[in-house]
């Protein structure tokens, strides 16, 4: 799969409807939701609990499918892909940063970072080299052999970011990346995300509750009852 270069937005959601159903009731989340994000944009998504932020992230990551509507990312229709194709798409084009890091406890920091590279046909030497460079990039040079449990929250999140970017994805989805961190660590993570966006051209979609974190983005989208309220802001 290759990312096709077209004039259409990098991420295009059109007429997305999604509802969660139980036997008795159906809870609508989105009804005809549209969203466009350009390549290289850093977008923050805010909103109250239950507004659909996580659902939006799940749809963008191909972890969940819409009831109706199109999801096009880098020219590819995510909603038309089967599970195997979506797995392959995630492995090649997507990096995800979680709120609680989600590192595998039995692996060292560098082994956690190496995980996505196992899905690529790289020899071990190339994998090791990329892992070392990525850990260096996130400021964890020398921490590779540490077990995640021996690292601070901020360091663990940096390992999470390293794991997300090690395979050089075009899109980074961040789910409350600073939600579990103190202010200083959160600022470091936001600075890093800003660097990845500006210097490495990653398109970033970040879901957050934290208005200060959202300030790091180019654009802030407010989700409320399944609809967007957009506020333009000037980059500092």
């Amino acid at each position: 799969m290759t990312i096709s270069e077209t004039n259409s937005p990098f991420i295009a959601l059109s007429s997305i409807s999604k509802a969660y159903r139980t036997r008795a009731i159906s809870v609508p989340i989105f009804d005809n939701l549209d969203l466009s994000i350009e390549k290289g944009e850093f977008v923050a998504v805010m909103g109250p609990s239950g507004s659909g932020k996580s659902t939006l992230l799940n749809l963008l990551a191909g972890l969940d499918g819409p009831d109706s509507g199109d999801i096009k990312i880098a020219g590819q229709r995510l909603d038309h892909m089967g599970e195997a194709a979506r797995s392959a798409w995630r492995a090649h084009h997507l990096g995800i940063v979680f709120q609680f890091y989600n590192l595998l406890p039995m692996l060292t920091a560098e082994e956690n970072v190496e995980l996505p590279l196992l899905l690529k046909p790289f020899p071990a030497s190339i994998r090791r080299e990329r892992v070392a460079k990525t850990l260096d990039l996130v400021g964890l040079c020398g921490f590779g052999r540490q077990n995640p449990s021996r690292l601070s929250g901020g360091q663990q999140q940096r390992v999470g970011i390293a794991r997300a970017i090690v395979s050089d994805p075009t899109l980074l989805l961040c789910d409350e990346p600073t939600g579990d961190l103190d202010r200083a660590s959160a600022d470091e993570i936001l600075t890093m995300l800003g660097y990845l966006n500006r210097e490495l051209g990653k398109t970033i979609v970040m879901v957050t509750h934290d208005p200060e974190a959202a300030e790091a983005a180019d654009r802030i989208l407010h989700l409320d009852k399944g609809a967007f309220v957009e506020r333009a802001r000037v980059m500092s």
Partner: peptide
């Protein structure tokens, strides 16, 4: 199960 979910999110396929 959670870790398996993480692996799948990273792109590990069902067969993998």
């Amino acid at each position: 199960r959670f870790e398996i979910g993480v692996l799948k999110t990273l792109g590990f396929s069902r067969s993998c």
